[in-house]
Design a protein around this nucleic acid. Structure first.
Length: 279
DNA sequence: AGCCAGGGTCTGC
DNA sequence: GCAGACCATGGC
């Protein structure tokens, strides 16, 4: 990976198998948006992250080499060879289609608490509204970083709120779940750092002690918050895929990387022209 | 108006 | 163990 510094920008050269926009907007993260000039922006780990992709380069605005190496390189999973992963997945014809049509999706390594809270909000909800609610959560209870930019509120902060106060973000019935999650994390009843070393089953079982966390949300948190890529979240879209294409279960080539396959299939089922007509 | 959205809980069999 | 009602909200 070649890195070049130009004034305030850090440029990463020779980026392969990475589509920035699709990766940050494909429903695994909820705080990203695109500016008028095609720059992707979000608050990540309490800082404004501003990135642009051109052909084979990633341009990080206002960052340092140290910051890139300690945070952003890992966040975007840039040290993992996704070309190799896609080659493996291509032995299944549907995954071949999915990975070729939507080349460059990666699994982001996101903050554990933020991911937990976000996917509790995601239940029985749609992506635009999930984004809106999380935005409101940050504006109301996060720290102001800059004009219009807020950090994701800590579990301690949310645990200090009443259910009534959480009502302002209009999360509906999910409010009580958010509060229960915050209380269990803030009190130490559940330690997210301990989950790091657990296998997938233990991870999901532990997360499901939180109210409002069932199999699907637990799998999403395992995958997107803990980078446990053998997790396989089944939402309504993936459920369709399974009944339409894999009635006998996932193909063998997904073994151990079910979560990465899942993200391609999810995005493919929702966006591909192949599924455009009828239902 | 009714259905759907990166579901889960609770009840009743 | 499993189906079915119910849960808030907003977009279409």
């Amino acid at each position: 990976m070649k890195i070049e510094i130009k004034s305030e920008d850090l440029i990463v050269k020779d980026i392969k198998c990475f589509d920035l926009k699709t990766t940050v907007l494909c429903g695994q993260a909820f705080r990203w948006s695109e500016t008028a000039d095609g720059i992707m922006q979000a608050v990540v780990k309490g800082e404004i992250l501003s990135v642009q992709q051109t052909k084979n380069e990633l341009i990080f605005k206002n960052t340092s080499k140290e910051k890139f190496e300690s945070e952003w390189c890992e966040y975007f999973d840039l040290n993992t060879n996704y070309h190799e992963i896609c080659q493996t997945l291509k032995s299944d014809v549907h995954l071949k289609n999915a990975t070729e049509e939507f080349y460059g999706i990666r699994i982001l390594k996101q903050d554990k608490w933020e991911t937990l809270c976000s996917f509790i909000i995601s239940q029985n909800n749609n992506i635009p509204r999930i984004m809106k609610i999380i935005n409101s959560l940050c504006e109301n209870f996060g720290e102001k970083i800059a004009d219009g930019a807020y950090s994701f509120p800590t579990a301690e902060k949310i645990a200090s709120l009443t259910l009534d106060e959480i009502g302002i973000i209009k999360s509906g019935f999910r409010g009580k779940y958010i509060l229960d999650a915050a209380q269990k994390i803030a009190s130490g009843e559940i330690d997210l750092n301990e989950i790091e070393n657990m296998n997938l089953q233990e991870t999901e079982q532990t997360l499901m002690k939180i109210k409002g966390v069932g199999p699907k949300v637990a799998a999403c948190v395992a995958l997107f918050g803990f980078y446990k890529v053998d997790a396989f979240p089944i939402d309504v879209w993936v459920k369709k895929i399974m009944s339409e294409l894999y009635p006998d279960g996932l193909p063998a080539c997904t073994k151990g990387i079910e979560g990465i396959a899942q993200q391609y299939l999810f995005h493919w089922r929702r966006n591909s022209v192949c599924f455009d007509v009828g239902e």
